[in-house]
Simulated assay, not measured.
Amino acid sequence: MEHPTQPGDDVAHMRRAVRLAAHGWGTTSPNPVVGCVITGTDGALAGEGFHAYAGGPHAEVVALAQAGERARGGTAYVTLEPCDHTGRTGPCSRALLEAGVARVVVAVADPNPAAAGGAARLRAHGVTVETGLLAEEAERVNAEWLTFVRLGRPHVTWKFAATLDGRSAAEDGTSKWITSPEARADVHRLRAGADAIVAGIGTVLADDPQLTARVPATTPPTGAPQGRKAPLRVVVDSEGRTPQGAKVLDDAAPTLVIVADDAVTGLEADIVRLPRHDPHAVLKELARRDVVSVFLEGGPTLAGAFLAAGLVDRVVAYLAPALLGGGAAALGDAGVRTIAQAHRLTFDDISQIGPDLRLTARPAAPPTPSREQ
């Protein structure tokens, strides 16, 4: 049953669960991020937890272990409907039942048919289940996984760096460095949270980027794999022109080169052939490889193609306090012929990173399922 209004304590506990879920960002793929808060019969906090890494204990299990007997008769606040299937871990719905929880408040129903059904099982055993509390906030923190499950393709974040007048390079082609060391460090943090970093051949030829995520080492949770998995590097290179000695082909991380199905190339690399100029086919191939989130760093041409196809879910722009007055624009042809066709966005965050501004936005209109090509 839906509850558009909730007592203040419910909102506070669910908001805490959403913040907890965010701690799992970048380490749970191909699984969702989930947070859970459990209160006792007196309404006081009894336990909390989040899903920290793929294959590890789910948020509900972590919170129940912390709560112990205080969970009996209490309430669980969960950002995503408790799963009802056995994978690498057991079903959370049954863990909640065994703990004697009397009430479960869920932010977002699980859209994955293989795992859904937890709410129904709980209700069938007499547990009060309420849904929809802070759903928008919970969806935002879990946007990558929800996009992957609902639309059958990876969630795409397009990142670009530019001057205040929208230039990504000077007239002579130089672009190092438009933004500050602080902004570049922030980019590496975002790269590290993605499953794949995608760039076009133009970027590879112009800048010879390594496309790796260089972030400070952290101690993983107990039982988690040692070290963060390196994102897959993907080069969209229709003619197979990537130089054999390009940094993106080194052994720092795995690399996939996408070549047109009719191209002739002698490139020695992990190559997949797809129809040319087809971002839908690119995402379909990456989804087949369990890539849930894509960090798009291609130049203006590739970015324009993804935008024109309606395949950009988030935009992260780093704007430097500088003006060039000429040079390359950050975005190429995005299918816009008149102002009415502009890709309208909604800002989610505006932050200062060193001397630069980081703007985070998403399409004002919701995405639609990917079409077959």
Rank of each mutant, 00 (worst) to 15 (best):
D207W: 01
L359N: 09
I201H: 00
E268K: 15
L133Y: 02
G118I: 09
G90F: 03
R150N: 00
P279C: 00
L331Q: 06
E182I: 07
L274W: 01
D186Y: 08
A170S: 07
G332W: 07
R314K: 04
V104D: 12
C92H: 03
V62F: 02
A52I: 02
T5M: 12
L232C: 02
P154A: 08
T41M: 13
A309C: 03
A224N: 10
V18G: 01
R289M: 13
V204T: 00
G193P: 04
V149C: 03
E182S: 13
V259C: 01
L345C: 07
A120Y: 09
K176Y: 11
H13Y: 10
T131K: 12
P154M: 14
A334H: 09
V105A: 10
G73Q: 04
M14L: 14
G68I: 00
G304S: 08
D313S: 05
F50M: 04
P216A: 09
A217W: 13
G55C: 04
A329W: 14
A206N: 09
G202H: 04
G173C: 03
L80C: 00
I350L: 15
I353L: 12
L296I: 09
E239R: 03
L20V: 12
H277Q: 13
A287W: 11
P4F: 05
V336Y: 05
S351F: 07
P275H: 01
E81A: 08
A95N: 05
G166N: 13
P321W: 11
A135T: 00
W145C: 01
D195Q: 11
A364M: 10
L190E: 15
I339G: 04
A260R: 04
T75Q: 12
T203R: 04
R371E: 07
R276C: 05
A206L: 04
A196G: 07
N142I: 04
P181N: 06
D250C: 08
V235I: 14
A224S: 01
K284G: 12
A99L: 10
A162D: 00
S351G: 08
D313H: 12
C92G: 14
M1K: 13
A46Y: 13
G298Y: 01
V292R: 12
A322T: 15
L324W: 14
S370P: 03
P363V: 06
V282W: 06
G87C: 05
G8V: 06
A334E: 01
W158M: 15
D165S: 07
L64T: 05
Q341M: 09
A206V: 03
Q352A: 15
L256I: 02
A361S: 08
T5G: 02
K159I: 09
H13M: 10
G326N: 14
D186K: 12
G100W: 07
A76K: 05
L64Y: 02
L286A: 10
L205K: 13
V282C: 05
V282S: 02
D270T: 12
